[in-house]
Design a protein around this nucleic acid. Structure first.
Lengths: 353, 353
DNA sequence: ATGAAAGCGCTAACAA
DNA sequence: TTGTTAGCGCTTTCAT
């Protein structure tokens, strides 16, 4: 029944048995400050002491509590990653590769998903709760309002395959517009006469830019305005149905450019199975992304390859820039795609021209 | 130069401008405890007060700092999710769906990836730093040592499509063994005579169980021991090469069961392109997973469907169990797969029997 | 080069 | 029903 200062022996507390700086300090009979300094490579500490601490910490199986650290440093070491598009295998691959790179940077990936329709905004409240050091948005729709909130909340945002012209946000994109033009030019060069386009999600900027580039390209090389099947989704079904619609009309296309590879594969299947067409003799099909599947013998899809690794590199560079200098301005980078020529596109000029 | 208690006006501090409980308390002239109680739906607070606080909090754009909360409650509200297998589209889909469910439970997904070879163990130190409430491992290799460390660290682990017999870990799996048997029985029923199997990763438990089930099934129904192409990876290439090898020998199989769908698709492509075979007339091909692609017209793959949604449901149930009762024992659940019959398998009995 | 002490934002005893 | 206070584990002045 002593009163004393009554701090010790609060052993009923949670604790969960993890080793803390205090434990190390006690074991070595130094102060917690010293332990902290040793762990954070503070130069103002004796080498011997540092070594002793580090050794002991290792022995005791110490692992820092990043919650506590983050609370004081105001840096969470968390990167928030938003994804919605999952039917396209391109993005899962980006998620995995990016996460690995972030891990190497000491950043932990917190993943947020949403269904395709509602975009990413609904996850915003979740985001703020952990105060991530950076937010990365993968080709998902994020309203400019949400973007603004992030910026206000001092969380730098990097958009991947999206950009917002006005807003103060970094972006790393494949140059979708040029990709679209490239396809138009190539098709013209191979003597195609009747271009068409099957859209993914109508208002996705990737889709908009690819189509715009394709249209402009067609005009520039003297091709007619492409027929456009508009807006379901970036899915196999969209391509399948789109292709059928395209050939239901009176004027048949001789080349179909698709919003992405998955759509293109759906389109090819429809052409072969439903329309009895042969590819590329009756119709050329071109995709976008160059996912692994595109090069499989069953598809052999000619497509615009997104420079995924280079894009990821850019994201990492941008993160470093944003996190190192306090007031670095957001920056937008556009990387060119490259046409991967395979057998789904007719190459020779035929009887044309 | 006053000394005083000198707490106020530490305005040079980080702060980052976020609204805290203290701000709300000040604005309403109540104590922070009251605010905290209102926010956490503590029953011991006056309804009026709660409403006032909630309203004000909303007005001020308050969002709790989960670092601080986690520090005291010892619950991070974080679920660690480990993935390595990315070539198989089954798992990205699980990741996205699972994440959405976890979000609904108020759990944030922290994603860890590793390359296929090294398994998941390397990420363990990262894990402990945030003290997740639960760890979920998706079909990745996690050494029993790592599992043990998690259990010791009081972090419950749920394996998805993996299990460890001895260890104290929960698991939710497709019943891969029965799936393998089912395939053998079906093949026999359709008059096949010469079964074969193309492996994924040799030591992956999914692969091992499917093969074991297939072997046992073949024996049970009087089919010969299946020829086995062993162990590259769960990839298209593995299937492509495996199929070629299978037909390089003297005895040709008339039915090839594959470690998963991607392998099966690779095998079919090889059969058609490299071997000039027709499917299913010359050889039947059966996969495992039933990914979206399997039902595409270009593949029409007969396959064992994993009950993905039911499996995810089980994971959620298990999480709730583990997190609610303190000392709930880990539990292993095996869910049966279902054969999806498509045209890649010959159905009629032929001249057989 | 080291220690003492304050405090990040929050919750949970314990009082009142 | 509410306020006071201690403290989660850590970093960081400020002394020494």
């Amino acid at each position: 029944m002593q009163k004393s200062k009554a701090k010790p022996d609060r052993k009923t507390w949670p604790a969960k048995g993890r080793v803390t700086v205090k434990d190390i300090a006690k074991a070595l009979d130094v102060s917690v400050a010293t332990v902290s300094r040793a762990l954070s490579n503070d130069p103002t500490i004796a080498d011997k002491t540092r070594e002793r601490v580090l050794k002991k910490a290792d022995e005791m199986g110490y692992s820092p509590n990043l919650f506590a650290r983050g609370l004081i440093t105001q840096r969470s070491r968390i990167a928030a990653l938003f994804v919605s598009n999952i039917t396209n295998p391109f993005y899962p691959e980006v998620v995995v590769k990016l996460t690995r790179r972030l891990q190497a940077l000491g950043l932990h990936t917190m993943l947020f998903t949403s269904d395709g329709t509602s975009g990413v905004d609904e996850a915003l409240p979740l985001l703020t709760q952990y105060n991530p050091d950076i937010a990365i948005v993968l080709a998902a729709t994020m309203s400019s309002e949400t973007v603004k909130k992030c910026v206000e909340g001092r969380t730098p945002v990097i958009l991947f395959n999206r950009y917002v012209s006005g807003a103060n946000v970094s972006a790393v994109c494949c140059d979708n517009y040029s990709g679209g033009r490239l396809v138009a030019e190539t098709l013209a060069g191979a003597g195609h006469k009747a271009p068409a386009y099957i859209s993914g999600l109508d208002d996705a900027s990737t889709n908009v830019d690819r189509l715009r580039g394709f249209r402009d390209g067609c005009a520039a090389v003297g091709l007619p305005e492409p027929a456009v099947i508009s807006g379901r989704d970036f899915t196999y079904e969209a391509g399948y149905i789109g292709m059928k619609e395209l050939f239901a009309g009176k004027s048949k296309p001789d080349a179909v450019f698709c919003g992405n590879d998955i759509i293109a594969i759906g389109a090819m299947d429809a052409a072969r199975r439903e329309l009895g067409l042969s590819i590329p003799d009756d119709v050329s099909v071109i995709g976008f992304d160059d996912i692994a599947m595109a090069s499989w013998p069953s598809h052999e899809l000619t497509t615009v390859r997104q420079p995924m690794n280079a894009m990821i590199d850019e994201v990492i560079i941008e993160i470093n820039r944003l996190l190192s200098q306090e007031d670095s301005q957001p920056q937008q980078r556009f990387l060119p795609g490259r046409l991967m020529v395979r057998t789904s596109m007719r190459l020779k000029e035929d009887d044309a021209r």
